[in-house]
Amino acid sequence: MTLREIAEILEADVVAGSDDLDVTIKNACSADMMSAVLYYHTPDSLLITGLTQPHVIRTAEIAGIKSIVFVLDKKPGADTIELARQKKIPILCTRFCMYTASGKLYEAGLPGCLFK
């Protein structure tokens, strides 16, 4: 599934990386616990989370996460957006909660990250 399709399904605003919407996302991980992202991730994943601080971008960069969705209309700060641009990690913001966002993407055929 492309990031463009994901943005459409989630009716999301693209706040960083709007030129990179053609990348393919293989699976998704819904979490707020950063250690879990580091533990269970598979590369090329989408992270769906409720946290918007810069350390979330650093976690994504280190885990090899392709893109991040911030849920519940949370607006990331300028420092987070700047870091995401620098690291080339597109950021989407959706008004849906993590459960609804996960449900809609799963319904559209996106699988979850596998255990590793």
Partner: peptide, 15 residues
């Protein structure tokens, strides 16, 4: 509340 403290850090390092 910042998303840390899952008690997986040391196991993650070892893994």
């Amino acid at each position: 509340e910042m998303g840390w403290g899952a008690g997986m850090g040391l196991p993650n390092m070892k893994k």
